[in-house]
Design a protein around this nucleic acid. Structure first.
Lengths: 381, 381
DNA sequence: ATTCTTCCTGAATCTTTAA
DNA sequence: TTTAAAGATTCAGGAAGAA
């Protein structure tokens, strides 16, 4: 298998320093598009030459010249050997731009022949999947419509064991964060996770992986950890040095985000989210005293919102919100009192805090009043 | 704005039947690739001709010929007018295939000039984001490192109001489920939500939207619902008929259409469900006047709850709830008034109806009062 | 008109403080 | 001593302003 992440046609100089002050730099600047294409084409030709009959190539690019690169691959490998357009999706720290924020890169997957090595990776079923579909055998009737299969006694027929859903061509993997330990200081470094997937679907242990633009050596590190053989090439001597350093101690930092999933960071209940949404709030996830900020400032300052929790007394909640609001320089704070929260309103409410009873509290109060009125009227006849 | 979803170069015949047995069919078969490209190129040329200087084009394709289509766009619009490669991501029922499951389609976004119309849509911050960096102003020291800004007294300085994160070029929108009500039976039908986003970012109300391969008319329906003008073209007469049915069936008003259209793909919003849940309600799905019943009876009879909808005036909502409540022999009814609903409280409120303002309405009133108090205090010195 | 410089942003981590 | 919460930091990549 060959993975290559050649210079993009971005017309920029990529430059970065590592923690020791060593500067890594390469140029994505080309005289003409034709020159760039020719540069890549020669390399693709050679890649095809050295590839086994069952081998595959993965070409990594952004959207600046992906269509030209795919043309080259079509020409050299044949369009019938196109396997997939893999989309690597990530969220990244943002910038201001008129238009949509770039949040993906493309990896073209071609095989040398139709008899290519491929290991299917199975993922979990979507939570919306009906288990009957997985468990029960199905048949097609005369009109071609599918239905569940029953045996002669009218019992459902259980299907053979399934392995899960085959992996899709869209891969959501966190972008290598500027603060990640995995970072070497080399520009355009890719996450190990990405290379692991590519190596796993296209090779077995002991197979050979080639990266002709190996840079910081992510491909090689991933290959080594997965017990594949590997060859790396780079024209920059300091890149090779870096590769050797990394390979001597191949480490992979597991991203907490990847490990626990983004939902682990979402700590609000549906109800709390609905309240915050109703009020027009940005949701705050990592603050005990504040659940959200109103999207609009008042008196030139932010307004913090807190929903009383069931495990908090009212006075506790007030103190938490008040202190957090002061720290964040809020003009006002808003407390949503809930019926579940422990009632205990001994302490005075700060002058810049607005307390609003939750809908359930208001409803109960109103219903009580209405029932009393009704009973009084009854008494009076 | 022009959106086009031309036949793909898939070399298949697309065929599907709707519920009335009408068959829709068109051919994706072309003699040669060159012929296909020429067919598209002519249309792109004309699209550019009729487009305004501030206009944009969105070309929808799968990965079978996307590189050729983008070449055409580069040629006709100029590669400096390439704005984004939008990736539409969806999860779909799986099929066994050696390789990765296709889970995306591509939409190329080009503008006619660099002075193009664009409305940024802001999304929520990631749950991993630290609010301090959103809230606090930052500075750069002499070494170019960033840190938080403090005033002379050592207090943090609050940054100006933020709007959220600009939308990325990767859109996760569910593929039209085979059972979805929105389905017309037309092959390759796209979800309305996808078209809504495209129309929203590239046009304002009253602008003109053209779909030269309109098929079942999803683009036109979305345009109509968003108060844009629209033109649809299709060479298949039964497609045009279908479009007209979809566009004209709700013969009343545009807002009625909106109501019907929205209701077709979601009966209760998450917010409404959360409110009903908060109040301790059983949810009622198919009643215009009632959204839920309290789990507890009052005075030995059920209590109906209704949330005012954005497309209902307050008096309309009151009448609906009151009539439905009488039919169901309710002792009381509860109306939740919302800020989105049309305000129009001319008619008297029935004696057994309890009206509760939504949290947002109460918050707005409280903030207004608090701000006024603050200003008065300022005036008095 | 072109190049250079400065500024701004926020996702996801690392670091420090509090419990 | 361990863990959780809060605070601080980095950097790709556009925009806007300066040279």
């Amino acid at each position: 298998m060959v993975y290559l992440d050649p210079p993009f046609f971005s017309q920029k100089i990529q430059c970065m320093k590592d923690s020791n002050g060593i500067e890594y730099r390469f140029s994505d600047i080309w005289e003409t598009r034709g020159e760039y294409i020719e540069y890549i084409r020669i390399r693709i030709e050679e890649i095809k030459r050295v590839l086994k009959e069952t081998g595959s190539v993965f070409l990594h690019c952004d959207d600046s010249a992906s269509h030209y690169l795919r043309m080259i691959l079509d020409d050299e490998f044949g369009e019938n050997n196109f396997r997939s357009e893999i989309i690597w999706v990530y969220k990244r720290w943002s910038n201001a731009k008129k238009g949509l924020l770039p949040g993906h890169q493309t990896i073209f997957f071609y095989s040398k022949t139709s008899n290519f090595k491929f290991n299917t990776i199975y993922k979990e079923y979507s939570p919306t999947t009906n288990i009957d579909q997985i468990l029960q055998e199905r048949v097609r009737n005369s009109e071609g419509k599918a239905s569940y299969k029953y045996d002669k006694k009218g019992n459902v027929v259980i299907a053979k064991e399934k392995k899960g859903v085959p992996m899709s061509d869209v891969w959501e993997i966190p972008f290598l964060n500027p603060k990640a330990k995995e970072r070497t200081g080399y520009p355009t470094q890719k996450p190990i996770e990405l290379l692991e997937k590519i190596i796993q679907i296209s090779t077995d242990e002991g197979n050979l992986v080639l990266d002709p633009f190996c840079g910081s050596g992510t491909t090689l590190v991933a290959a080594k950890m997965l017990n594949r053989d590997f060859i790396g090439v780079d024209k920059n001597p300091s890149a090779i040095e870096l590769c050797n350093r990394r390979l001597a101690e191949p480490t992979k930092t597991v991203s907490r985000l990847l490990q626990v999933g983004v939902d682990a960071y979402r700590t609000k209940t549906d109800e709390e989210l609905a309240i915050l949404n109703m009020l027009g709030c940005d949701v705050v996830q990592r603050n005990k005293g504040i659940d959200g900020f109103l999207k609009k400032f008042y008196l030139g300052a932010p307004v913090a919102v807190k929903i009383q929790k069931s495990y908090e007394s009212f006075s506790e909640a007030i103190n938490l919100l008040n202190n957090a609001g002061k720290k964040k320089k809020c003009s006002f704070t808003v407390m949503i009192r809930t019926s579940e929260g422990l009632v205990d309103s001994e302490i005075p409410i700060p002058s810049n805090m607005i307390v609003i009873d939750g809908l359930d509290l208001q409803l109960n109060a109103s219903l009580l009043k209405a029932s009393n009125n009704y009973n009084k009227r009854l008494m009076r006849g």
